[in-house]
């Protein structure tokens, strides 16, 4: 008898669990899944924001239009270039810097905080600052000229498409490097010190112990940082948009999010923008799925 009383009590308690989860489930149903399905269905129509005509079902026409559109492929390329460039720099430098910072005796915390500090500024502010830095009379030219000993030369940061892409990458790198350094440092901190003591006894120097011990044990963190920064870069918008408004040519930095914004909001092509959203979504899902898969299989045991 007491047993059944207890189990009904437990059941009653557990019902509260569902009640407590309900607000979130309701929220995600309305604000994540509904718009996702809506975008999916709209992507098969010719819906336009300002048109009074009922949107017509046009099958895969939006997708075939996009796949043939040089503008869309330009955006895909701009996004890919930006993502690959920024993410590889972030991964390499966060590993390198975290290795160096964690070697420090003095000022470890201070360096971490200082590197992190640009993340405090909003992207709009970051873009505003860097627009002035890339000004013909700005700090970027001054620094370049000081390093290369070419006084008074304008390096045309926004004229050359590669340099323009590089400029946006630099802003992103500047803003986010500290965040990934911190992630790597806490990943390193989770490697037990006894492992290092053991290899030091075996006569490994620091470099060897980093290369043979830390780096392999850090693999899950590396994977995590890679995928996180990749997703972050795929979603970039503010910097490119602000640079475009600030006079930088749009073409080289017209990333996919900006293209969705222009197509859907400025040119009112809701159907086409939805198709682009779905493509972005698919890319994202694949990457996140990879993250889950890889991080799960990479659990390490010491």
């Amino acid at each position: 008898m007491p047993r059944t009383v207890r189990s009904t009590l437990k059941k009653k308690q557990d019902r509260w669990g569902l009640v407590f989860a309900a607000p979130s489930l309701f929220f995600f149903a309305v604000f994540s899944f509904y718009p996702m399905f809506s975008a999916f269905f709209t992507s098969f129509t010719n819906k336009q924001a300002l048109s009074l005509a009922r949107p017509k079902f046009i099958g895969l026409e939006n997708y075939s239009y996009l796949l043939q559109s040089p503008d869309f492929w330009n955006s895909m390329r701009a996004t890919a270039v930006f993502t690959l460039g920024t993410f590889s720099a972030l991964v390499v430098f966060s590993l390198l810097l975290s290795a160096l910072v964690s070697e420090l005796r003095v000022g470890k915390k201070l360096f971490q905080l200082a590197y992190y500090s640009p993340a405090v500024l909003s992207s709009v502010v970051a873009a505003t600052i860097w627009l002035l830095i890339f000004d013909p009379r700005g700090l970027a030219n001054q620094a370049m000229n000081a390093v290369m000993n070419t006084p008074g030369v304008d390096h045309y940061w926004f004229v050359n498409p590669y340099k323009e892409q590089f400029s946006t990458m630099l802003v992103y790198f500047w803003k986010h490097i500290g965040y990934f350094v911190i992630i790597c440092i806490s990943g390193m901190a989770s490697v037990p010190p006894s492992v290092y003591e053991a290899v030091r006894m075996d006569g490994c120097n620091r470099w060897q112990s980093y290369w043979h011990i830390t780096f392999p044990l850090l693999r899950p963190t590396v994977v995590l940082v890679s995928i996180m920064s990749m997703i972050l870069c795929l979603r970039t918008f503010s910097v490119q948009y602000l640079f475009t408004l600030g006079g930088a040519p749009e073409r080289a930095i017209n990333v996919i999010t900006m293209n969705i914004y222009f197509t859907g909001i400025r040119f009112f092509r809701t159907g086409r923008a939805s198709a682009m959203s779905i493509i972005l979504l698919i890319i994202m899902v694949v990457l996140t799925w990879l993250q889950f898969r890889v991080t799960r299989s990479e659990e390490v045991n010491y």
């Binding site: 718009p35 996702m36 809506s38 979603r235 969705i260 859907g264 909001i265 959203s277 972005l280």
Partner: peptide, 17 residues
Amino acid sequence: ATMMIPFEAIMIPLQVV
């Protein structure tokens, strides 16, 4: 799973609504 849905992919329907 909702972490996989980037806001940029659902913003157009959200704006319409």
